[in-house]
Computed example of a mutant assay.
Amino acid sequence: MRQLCLTKPRQQGATLVELVMTIVIIGVAIAGVVGAFSLITGRSADPLNQTRAVALAQLYMDEILARNYDESSKVGGGKVPAAQVDCTSPGADGETRAGYDDVDDYHAITNAIPEDGEGNPLPGYDNFRISITVSCAGDDISEMSLANADAKRIDITITDPSNATYQFSAYRGNF
């Protein structure tokens, strides 16, 4: 004859304390992961802004360097005599953006919305700002023994939507 076992079967599962501990541990781990993701997503636009700032600076620099050295430059080119180069008052001389014809005219651009060569706002660059300074700087290039009126330095500062600034410089020679 068979004997019946009167012991209770073992229960399986987790206690309430074990469940609470598991929830706390998973919660702490998720908080760390979410914090890392928020840091990464906060900086995800930086490379895009840097690339766009470089492209914008290149656009302006190409346009400026294609212009005449000075207001008194000849149409076909040629060196402007140092006595005729005005290093004291660069600026647009009342010209509109579409009429900028020499390097000095761009000195008037300060904290402006980027525009194309005709003065129209560039699409997609609404939150960028650009500032340009132009100065006579032949003395900066000492190896070539240039007079101050033989070179102009063009400094472009781009400010992106996150207020990071990027600076670019080039020289335009008097030839």
Score class of each variant (00 low, 15 high):
Gly35Tyr: 03
Asn68Gln: 14
Glu63Val: 10
Ala29Glu: 01
Ala82Lys: 04
Gly77Phe: 02
Tyr106Met: 06
Arg43Val: 06
Arg97Cys: 13
Ala36Cys: 06
Leu122Gln: 04
Asp105Phe: 03
Ser72Arg: 10
Gly119Cys: 02
Cys87Glu: 05
Ala36Tyr: 07
Leu59Asp: 08
Val85Leu: 12
Glu71Gln: 15
Asp86Phe: 04
Arg43Asn: 13
Ile113Arg: 14
Ala82Ile: 00
Ala57His: 05
Ala55Met: 14
Ser89Pro: 12
Ser72Glu: 09
Asp101Ile: 15
Ser38Asn: 12
Ile23Arg: 05
Ser89Asp: 15
Leu39Cys: 14
His107Tyr: 01
Asp86Pro: 03
Val34Asn: 00
Thr51Met: 09
Pro114Tyr: 00
Gly27Ser: 06
Asn49Tyr: 14
Leu19Trp: 09
Ile113Cys: 11
Asp70Cys: 12
Leu39Glu: 08
Leu65Gln: 12
Asp104Ser: 03
Ala82Cys: 15
Gly78His: 06
Gly76Arg: 04
Met61Gly: 08
Gln58Leu: 11
Pro81Val: 03
Gly99Leu: 14
Glu115Asp: 14
Gln84His: 14
Ile25Glu: 03
Asn111Val: 06
Ala112Ile: 11
Val33Gly: 03
Ala98Lys: 02
Asp62Ala: 10
Asp46Lys: 08
Asp101Gly: 12
Tyr106Phe: 13
Ile109Arg: 00
Leu19Phe: 00
Asp46Phe: 05
Asp105Pro: 12
Asp46Met: 06
Asn120Phe: 07
Met61Asn: 15
Ile26Val: 03
Asn68Gly: 15
Leu48Ile: 14
Leu65Arg: 11
Gly119Arg: 02
Val17Trp: 02
Ala36Glu: 09
Met21Tyr: 11
Leu65Ile: 09
Leu19Ala: 10
Ile23Val: 12
Leu39Ser: 13
Leu39Tyr: 06
Val20Lys: 07
Asn68Asp: 15
Thr22Met: 12
Ile23Pro: 07
Glu118Ala: 10
Gly42Tyr: 11
Thr22Ala: 11
Ile113Thr: 14
Leu56Gln: 01
Ala83Thr: 10
Tyr60Trp: 07
Tyr60Met: 04
Gln84Trp: 14
Val24Ile: 08
